[in-house]
Amino acid sequence: MSELTDTRAPAPSRAGRLPSLLRDTVTMSQRSVRLTMREIDGLLTALILPVLIMLVFVYLFGGAIRTPTEQYVDFVLPGVLLVCTGFVSALTATSVTRDMKEGIVDRFRSMGVAGGSLLTGHVVSSLVRCGCASALMLATAFLIGFRPTADAAGWIAAAGVLVMFVWALSWLAAVFGLLARTPEGASGFSFVIMFLPYASSGFVPVETMPGWVRGFAENQPVTPVIETLRALLHGAPAGADAAVAAAWCAGVTAVSVVLAAVLFRRRTA
């Protein structure tokens, strides 16, 4: 008799959990990409600002900066690329805060959607956003005389480095998004992140910096990423820089994912 009157939904099966986690992550990624593409203000800033920064450096400051490359644009491109992708990744913080503040996170949770799926969706949309911004930036760079010497393998490797960097930074941004109480507060993270490439080997050779700044610039995570990109784009071996860059990105990602998991649980308790 109990079978007839039991109206319970089918019991959860362990085997069914992983596919549903993947499916939810895909759905949440589609959502975040769609939202990001429709957020015209943020998208335009993310696309236009970095291009402007590049033009300012190449045409206003570049003439006065002596670099190992013949043209300043060849030297500065990896730096502006990281300013750009850094800024765009940091927008992840704002979207995460917004979701946490509004009722939608409760609905997702009451539907059994894991926090990991929601946050991964935001990080994936950050990758897509960065892809668009980088493409626009490279196209502009080519127009103003950027002439890399990399072969196909070099380009693929450079793209891989950039993806690693954006992935790590977007997870870090998600952590800030979970910490911030308002989207405005979360947007402050962009400025911290935008500053880092300036204090690196991205815009001027570090040898020109005073001692203590130089110490920071040589040992902060952005510098090895820039050096790796620069080497790859110019067909040179990236060597130890690539390993250091990969270690930084993996480390930042690992710490951020763990922090995000803890914070998500705490914020929604």
Binding site: D6, T7, R8, A9, P10, A11, P12, R31, R34, L35, R38, E39, E102, G103, I104, D106, R107, S110, M111, G112
Partner: peptide
């Protein structure tokens, strides 16, 4: 709720319920 314990059988509860909160849980941009 719906025969499931809200702490020990959360998955079962979540598949059986829907929650509509005070603030519309929807994406304005969709």
């Amino acid at each position: 709720v719906a025969g499931y314990d809200v702490e020990r059988e959360r998955g079962g509860v979540r598949r059986s319920i829907s929650l509509t909160g005070q603030y519309a849980a929807l994406d304005d941009l969709q």
